[in-house]
Amino acid sequence: MHAFANPARFLGIARPLTPWLGWGGAALIVGALVPGLTVTPPDAVQGESARIMYVHVPAAWLGMAGWGGILVASLVQLIWRHPLAGVAARAIAVPGAAFTAICLVTGSLWGRPTWGTWWEWDGRMTSMLVLLFLYFGYIALAAASDERASTSRVAAIFGVLGAINLPIIHYSVTWWNSLHQPQSIGLTSSSIDAALLWPLLVATAGFSLLFGAIVLMRMRAMIADIRVEARLRRMAEA
């Protein structure tokens, strides 16, 4: 793992990987959303509004997977003191928050015609809103720290603590009766018909690749920032 501790080595891989992830993700998103919004059949009960899931579900997945990434990166930072782990966690936070916000907005837009309400304080919605606020807290903590290079220990601990919300989000529809429907897609089965499922899976893969590209771009920008600062400091001392 420490092979990538050397930023030059990391950049050597991240730089060529970024366009592949970005353009690959964009191609998959277009390939899923264009047929998903025009060709595939609507849902029998909800009608056309069900198509919003092609954005809503990937956004929900990335909002949660993003914090999962922050958890792993924070643990790696705390235990192995990997110099890039804190950078990775900080790079994930902003796109993670953005996708969580997209998930909440699209869910609200879908909820009005389906449930008859924009917002209800049900377990799933409340825990997802808490996730957004956790992201805001993480971003503020990381920005407030003096140790720019590897982010603060406090932010990493907050990243680990905040992960307790992930199982709560996941099980909120199982443990408590809620307005949000239970899980549609399991590991081996799906209660979404194949005709509606494939654009969902392709869009999820596409948004995930795009997320990866954004994270790599942000990591490269942060590393460049650190280098500029180090050089300026050396010049000031000389």
Binding site: Q46, G116, S191
Partner: peptide, 18 residues
Amino acid sequence: HTILAKHDENYMPPQMAD
């Protein structure tokens, strides 16, 4: 005074539902 509809986890095209 307020009614909310719950949707279940099943998604399918209209032909199949018929």
